[in-house]
């Protein structure tokens, strides 16, 4: 196990493996997203209250979930960087940042486009929306900090600390709708009793969520390969490519 971990963590090995996985991940993503879009846009019935506008959910909710999941992944990388000083974790952390920022941006924009017809406003400063906006700033802060420091090994440690500390925001986002009065409604799928969503609406939602997870790995691998090449341009294994 440890040996495998060690091998997977070596840059040339990871570079090769990631390259092999990319076409498969692309195919899987396309299948899942097609099924999810068909289910969400065509097969699922309109909602009893919100009509067809609720279909924004199928991109909004997976984006919002991913915005938090990617951040957790980055915080875990941060701990690995600080404790084990693993090079690959540095690359995964910084490569995740633009992808996570994109998901957060999408969650905010699609939420805003959903809020206008349903709530009557594009934006309010309630706890859920504000904490998600803070998440976007955390992502941008991580990207900015990494760019500002020349020495990438030092930059990785600074960014790791920011990622770990910022992780406090993730449970705040999730529980904001329960701890405080908000305009945003409570959770639908992750509450402890049965999810209160009809199965023909839930299924495409889960398909879209799964496809977004596959997409994250796909985009991450691509970003990591570019980052690896940039950093290790003078090393022997790159010369051999």
């Amino acid at each position: 196990m440890f040996l495998w971990f060690h091998k997977f963590g070596s840059p040339p090995h990871f570079y090769r493996i990631a390259g092999k996985w990319i076409p498969w991940l692309s195919g899987l993503f396309l299948v899942l997203v097609t099924a999810g879009l068909f289910g969400g846009l065509i097969a699922a019935p309109p909602d009893y209250q919100q009509g067809d506008s609720y279909r924004i959910m199928f991109v909004h909710v997976p984006s919002a979930w991913m915005s938090m999941l990617v951040y957790v992944a980055m915080a875990v990388c941060g701990i690995i960087i600080m404790v084990w000083r693993m090079k690959l974790a540095e690359i995964v952390l910084i490569s995740s940042a633009p992808i996570g920022a994109s998901f957060t941006f999408l969650a905010l924009v699609t939420g805003s486009l959903w809020g206008k017809p349903m709530w009557g406003t594009y934006w309010v400063w309630d706890a859920r929306l504000t904490s998600e906006l803070i998440l976007l700033f955390l992502y941008l802060g991580i990207i900015g900090l990494h760019n500002a420091i020349e020495d990438k090994r030092v930059a990785a440690r600074a960014v790791a600390i920011l990622a770990i500390v910022g992780a406090v925001n993730v449970p705040i986002i999730h529980f904001s709708v329960e701890w405080w009065n908000t305009l945003h409604q409570g959770p639908t799928v992750t509450k402890f009793d049965k999810p209160s969503i009809y199965w023909s609406m839930l299924l495409p939602l889960l398909l879209m969520a799964l496809s977004f997870q596959v997409y994250y790995v796909l985009a991450l691998f691509q970003q990591c390969r570019a980052e690896l090449l940039r950093r290790e341009r003078n090393s022997k294994w790159v010369e051999e490519l």
Partner: peptide
Amino acid sequence: GGYAMFVWPSYAISALVLWLNWYLPRNQH
């Protein structure tokens, strides 16, 4: 159902951002 001007832009911007995240690193690589 009359919500086209909210639903379709949501999907369009999602597709655009996801495409960029796929295309830019690939291009750079």
